[in-house]
């Protein structure tokens, strides 16, 4: 089943000289973990935000599981899509538990079910529920905050997860742990993930396919192995060279 499809998608911001996202067409299978790789300003965030309609395309269509997202109510659409950003965006006046329970509460789950779910999610992201449940975001380290952000996005078990440089501000060791945890979580539930990064090694470690973007366009969209073996053009070749070959060791080969 095709989980996400872009067909001739163009996004142009008012007054901008060029398209932020330029005629993107691609299909993502259910259960894939796609990493979106590109330099700053290449349109990664714009592409992602069109999926949950924080931005709307000027041209083209985006479908989730065969349904045009423009036919759905944006608020309802977003409840089926997890969203994690680098700045995390935890609600500072709510505890970890209240943050994670946000969507389950809106969906009117009963208290007991929410309590069980919060603890389950905290364990999933390697935080001890008893220790962290009642803390406020300011009482957590950056890495712990991002784990809570991830747990909050996973709360209602969305079919699609959008992640915009979620580990961008986290130190190398924590980052590597979080990457492993994310792979484990993805492996367990086989939801469809779209993960933006500008770190080549991260993109190649996490993605079963990597979407390389430049200037709003897709340069190459393939498995890490095939991108390494056969870079589409000089841009991709230089991108690989710039990472000093680190992608080679960590690349997930094939699917």
């Amino acid at each position: 089943m095709i989980a996400i499809s872009f067909d001739g998608v163009v996004k142009r911001f008012p007054g901008a000289a060029r398209n932020a996202v330029d005629r993107v067409s691609l299909e993502i299978e259910e259960g894939e973990l796609i990493t979106v790789l590109g330099a700053s300003g290449s349109g990664k965030t714009t592409l992602l935000k069109m999926v949950n309609r924080l931005f709307e395309p000027n041209e083209g269509t985006i479908c989730l599981f065969g349904e045009n997202i423009m036919d759905k109510d944006p608020v309802k659409l977003r409840r089926g899509i997890g969203y994690v950003i680098q700045q995390i965006g935890l609600f500072p006046h709510m505890t970890v538990r209240e943050n994670i329970a946000t969507i389950p509460r809106i969906l009117k789950w009963d208290r007991a079910r929410i309590g069980v779910r919060v603890d389950e999610l905290l364990s999933l992201v390697n935080l001890d529920p008893d220790e962290f449940r009642e803390r406020y975001p300011a009482q957590l380290s950056g890495g712990q905050q991002q784990r809570v952000g991830l747990a909050r996005a996973l709360a209602a078990d969305p079919a699609v997860m959008l992640m915009d440089e979620p580990f961008g501000a986290i130190d190398a060791i924590n980052r590597s742990n979080l990457q492993d945890e994310l792979l484990a979580i993805h492996g367990k539930h086989k939801r469809t993930y779209l993960f933006v990064t500008h770190d080549v090694a991260e993109a190649f470690k996490l993605g079963n396919r990597v979407l390389v973007m430049d200037g709003g366009r897709v340069k190459q969209f393939d498995t890490p192995q095939r991108i390494v073996d056969d870079p589409a053009d000089d841009f991709v070749r230089e991108l690989l060279a710039s990472s000093g070959g680190r992608h080679g060791q960590s690349a997930r080969v094939g699917n």
């Binding site: 935000k49 949950n52 924080l54 608020v75 309802k76 659409l77 977003r78 409840r79 089926g80 899509i81 997890g82 969203y83 950003i85 700045q87 995390i88 965006g89 935890l90 609600f91 500072p92 946000t102 969507i103 809106i106 909050r152 996005a153 959008l162």
Partner: peptide, 11 residues
């Protein structure tokens, strides 16, 4: 960013 996170999750 907090408001965007709230909107993005379907509040």
């Amino acid at each position: 960013q907090i408001v965007e996170a709230a909107a993005g999750m379907g509040m």
